[in-house]
Amino acid sequence: MSTNLRHAGFKAMGTYCEIQLYEASRISARRLVRRLIEEVNRLESKYTRYRDDSFLSKINRSAGDQTGVKIDVETLKLFEHAQTCYEQSDGLFDITAGVLRRVWDFSRKRIPDESELQELLPLIGYERLNWHDNMLFLPENMEIDFGGIVKEYAADSLANLARELGVKRGLINLGGDFAAIGSQPENRPWPIGITHPEDPTKMMSHFHLSEGGLASSGDYERSFILDGKRYSHLLNPRTGWPCAGLRAASVSANLCTVAGSFATIAMLKQEQDALNWLTESGLPFVFMDGAGQIGGPGLAD
């Protein structure tokens, strides 16, 4: 029986998402898509900071509580990945830096005073988290934000679940973070366009993905310009001020989670340090530098 490519678009994690599957039966494809959407909704409900009933909100409410909070196996894996990112980035990738949102308002173009930032910096630092087995004791006034890793983790989770459900060929797209489930028929790769940071109607580059994941990071969605100076939403946890390196980076790796961490860490580094970091990784990547120039070994024809 021949298989057809089935498409399903939906909203999740605050962005447009799409699932593509090769499946002979339309009914079977709908059932598979429904199950995958249920999974991404579960992860969003569990790890969003916008819902009081999420597990992440429960963790953050426990700050300063001497009884701590018990962390389940799935969430422990996120913390372990976050620790790896923290160590690989020399502290630039820090899931405790979300407290800086208390004084930065990118929608209103509000720039905080240095004194405001200095009050928050002591509340940042992954190494300040206290663990006893699977119990987390979050210091008072600190908070956790999985926003830098959970979408990529969800893409990988959906790809794994799809394989368990019998899918042989498919592509998960969660707002520009991709996870491939095999190639297309005849071993054709999935063509993926990378949106141009300065013009969303254009493509910056194209990737060809047959397995693994692809993730992008950039300052183009939530940055602002004030008095001729650009302010990125990507903040340096050491200073509280925006990073000023690359404009965008896209990376391909064996997992979307891995690709996302390399792309985000690159965005947090100084420009030349970022390019060295990406080059030394050996992974395919493309970038836009501060001058708007596009390059990288991941460029596809």
Rank of each mutant, 00 (worst) to 15 (best):
Asn4His: 10
Ala8Asp: 00
Phe10Ala: 02
Lys11Phe: 10
Ala12Tyr: 03
Ala12Arg: 14
Tyr16Leu: 08
Glu18Lys: 09
Glu18Cys: 12
Glu23Met: 13
Glu23Tyr: 10
Glu23Ile: 04
Ile27Thr: 09
Arg31Trp: 06
Leu32Ile: 14
Leu36Gln: 10
Ile37Ser: 03
Glu44Pro: 07
Ser45Gly: 09
Arg49Lys: 10
Tyr50Thr: 12
Ile71His: 08
Glu74Ser: 08
Leu78Trp: 05
Cys85Leu: 01
Asp94Leu: 13
Ile95Met: 08
Thr96Ile: 07
Ala97Lys: 15
Leu100Ser: 04
Arg101Met: 04
Arg102Thr: 10
Arg102Leu: 10
Arg110Gly: 04
Pro122Ile: 05
Ile124Glu: 00
Tyr126Asp: 02
Leu129Val: 07
His132Gly: 10
Met135Thr: 13
Leu136Ala: 10
Glu143Lys: 12
Ile144Pro: 10
Asp145Phe: 11
Asp145Arg: 04
Gly147Ile: 08
Gly147Ser: 11
Gly147Arg: 05
Ala155Ser: 11
Leu158Gly: 06
Asn160Arg: 13
Asn173Ala: 03
Asn173Phe: 05
Gly182Arg: 07
Gln184Arg: 14
Asn187Trp: 13
Pro189Lys: 14
Pro191His: 09
His196Val: 04
Pro197Asp: 03
Thr201Ala: 12
Lys202Arg: 15
Met203Cys: 09
Ser210Trp: 02
Gly213Val: 03
Ala215Met: 05
Ser216Lys: 05
Ser217Asp: 05
Ile225Phe: 06
Lys229Trp: 03
Arg230Pro: 04
Asn236Cys: 09
Arg238Thr: 08
Cys243Tyr: 06
Leu246Met: 01
Leu255Thr: 15
Val258Ile: 15
Ala259Gln: 13
Ser261Lys: 03
Phe262Trp: 15
Leu268Gly: 00
Asp273Pro: 02
Trp277Ser: 04
Ser281Met: 10
Gly282Asn: 06
Phe285Leu: 12
Phe287Gly: 01
Gly290Tyr: 12
